[in-house]
Structure formats: C-alpha cells, structure tokens
C-alpha cells in the first residue's frame, strides 16, 4: 500500500517536473517570436515541411472519413426517411468534431513525430550545441520557426480535411446512394452556422490543437535523450501525448461550446 502511494507520488512529481520544464521551454520559445518576425523565410521553409508535405495524408484521410460518414449516415437516416438531412449530418460531424480532431491526430503522426525526430537528431549529432557555440540561439533558429509554422498549418489542414470530407460525403450520398444534390447542400447550409459550428468547431479547436501538438512535438525533441533509443521514445511520446491531450482538450472545448 505504502509502496504504491510512494510510486504514485514519484510519478506525480515527475509529471509535474516535466510539465514545469515544458512550460519554461514554451515561455523561452515565445520570447524569441519577435525576432522571428524579421525572418519569415525560416517559417515558410517549415510551413512547407509540416504543412504542404502533410497535405496528401490529410486529403486522403478526409476523403475516406467523409465517404464513410456518408454511408453510415445514410444507413441510419433511411429508416426515418430523412436522407435529405445527410448533408447536415456529414457537415456537423466533420466541422464540430472529426475535422479538427482527426486532422490533429494525423498531424501528430506525420509532422509532429518528424519535428521531434529531427530536433532530437540535431541534439544527438551536436548540431544544436554547434549552433549555440556559434552564438546562434536554437530557440530562435530551430524551435520557434517549427512551432509557428505548425501553429499556422494546423487550422489550414483541419479546414482542408473538413472540406474534402464533406466532398467525400457528397459524392457517396449523391452519386452512389441517390440523395438529391440540392437537398444535400441546402439542408447543410440551413443547419451549419458560421460562428456556432465553423468558428467554434473547426477554427478554435484546430488552433488549440495546433498549439498543444506543436508545443509537445518541439519540446519532446528538445528534451530527448540524445541516443537512438531516446529519440525513438521521444517520437513515440509525441504521438501518444498529443493524442491524449487533443482528445481531452476536445472534450473540454466541446463542453464549453456545445454542452447543454
């Protein structure tokens, strides 16, 4: 019993310690953002790496998720003769929940893990130390551009995921299942609100997820033990921790925006 309590205490202290270090890391990173504004090239290069290169997986996943939503929605709505509401079901599911959440999870798996591995390897091969020895702050030159680029890319990717998902649902609904095209779009237009659904859903959620996903990815790389095993563990932690934090945060935001 006492052993268990001790272990729990140690785990809690370790977790708090790590959270504290991650917070100090973030504060120092935010302190370098002013200087970063004068070098937009650094952000653009990273935007390509974390944003553009993530597009194929985001687009493909969005398409399939939308198509599945179309099929599942139709299978349920047909019993009630409400298949004309299929557009609403697909759009609300994607805009409020699946778009930002799945885009964030995919982002963590594709771009977040790459950022962690890249920074961890830079640490292991002494590239970060070399930078510091050249009086160049890695927070301004390496960490901040990746954080900012990811923060910008995340909402855009979530938007693209959602839009392509809706198109996927549309193609299945209209061309495979015979739902009326006009009903699909008009019902969606009538039910989906710009502020209530689009802003509160896909925009605010993906901004919040982008913040935590990139904070975790950059910090894990910085904090990685500079060995092959250490980098491997850090990369895994990035994906696992981002998934858990995104899902928990999604619950909180959903309760705030859509809770009754």
């Amino acid at each position: 019993m006492l052993d268990g309590l001790q272990r729990l205490g140690r785990l809690t202290l370790g977790w708090l310690n790590r959270l504290g270090r991650a917070t100090l890391f973030l504060l120092r990173l935010l302190g370098t953002l002013g200087a970063l504004g004068r070098r937009p090239g650094l952000i653009i290069k990273q935007l390509y790496s974390v944003g553009v290169l993530s597009l194929p997986i985001i687009a493909m996943s969005g398409l399939f998720v939308g198509m599945v939503l179309g099929l599942q929605g139709y299978a349920n709505l047909v019993d009630f003769g409400a298949t004309s509401s299929l557009g609403t079901v697909v759009a609300l599911s994607l805009v409020r929940e699946l778009g930002p959440v799945l885009a964030a999870l995919l982002y963590a798996a594709r771009a977040g893990s790459a950022v962690t591995a890249e920074i961890g390897l830079m640490k292991a091969t002494e590239q970060l130390a070399a930078m510091q020895m050249m009086a160049v702050d890695p927070f301004a030159r390496v960490f901040a551009p990746r954080f900012v680029a990811g923060f910008i890319a995340m909402p855009l990717l979530a938007g693209i995921f959602t839009a392509i998902g809706i198109l996927g649902g549309y193609f299945v609904a209209v061309y495979q299942l015979g739902v009326d095209s006009g009903a699909f779009w008009s019902q969606m237009q009538a039910a989906v609100g710009l502020v209530d659904d689009v802003i509160n859903g896909v925009v605010i959620k993906s901004v919040a997820f982008g913040w935590v996903a990139n904070w975790i990815a950059v910090f894990e790389g910085y904090d990685a033990i500079p060995t092959s095993e250490g980098i491997s563990r850090a990369t895994t932690r990035t994906v696992v921790n981002t998934a858990l934090v995104v899902l928990a945060l999604d619950f909180v935001l959903t309760a705030i925006f859509f809770g009754v």
Binding site: T125, E126, Q127, A129, A130, Q132, M133, M134, A135, D137
Partner: peptide, 23 residues
C-alpha cells in the same frame, strides 16, 4: 548572462568530435 555569453562566443569556435555540420 545568455546575451553576453553569445557575444563572447562570437569570438570563439569549437570543432566538435562529430563535426556537427548541419545535415
């Protein structure tokens, strides 16, 4: 402090065992 240390480091260099070139 960090700023002054970086000023001093502009006047010194280090050749790392791993070379530490930016890959």
């Amino acid at each position: 402090g960090r700023k002054d240390l970086y000023q001093l480091r502009k006047r010194m260099s280090m050749l790392f065992q791993s070379s530490a070139l930016f890959t």
